[in-house]
């Protein structure tokens, strides 16, 4: 485990080593670690196995990924140029406050 991984990973891994199964709650809790490839390979394989069998978790993972992508697209300056329009008064105010009015 890399530094900064939430301590719950230890509990999950211990439970899996005891023969416990990955459930939907685990998938939800550790989804980001899974996407960031921070789960150890053994745990990761069992995650993926759960995803092939559980349509709800499969859908959850996909829509979670879409959420991140949609948020990025909705805020991307290139796609939304009006979000980065500089009011002329602000340019003037900044230059004035530098003591170098245009």
């Amino acid at each position: 485990m890399s530094a900064g991984v939430p301590r719950e990973f230890g509990e999950l891994i211990a439970r899996l080593k005891d023969g416990g199964a990955i459930n939907c709650r685990d998938c939800s809790d550790f989804l980001m670690a899974y996407l960031d490839k921070e789960l150890d390979p053994q745990v990761c394989a069992r995650f993926e196995q759960h995803l092939t069998r559980c349509s709800s978790c499969h859908n959850y993972v996909e829509t979670y990924r879409q959420t991140v992508r949609l948020a990025q697209e909705a805020c991307c300056p290139k796609a939304n140029p009006h979000l980065g329009k500089m009011p002329p008064e602000l340019v003037a105010a900044i230059l004035a406050s530098l003591g170098r009015a245009p």
């Binding site: 459930n23 939907c24 709650r25 685990d26 939800s28 349509s55 709800s56 859908n59 959850y60 829509t63």
Partner: peptide, 8 residues
Amino acid sequence: GHPAHAAS
């Protein structure tokens, strides 16, 4: 550990 609402 099952979800209260299945994801679509």
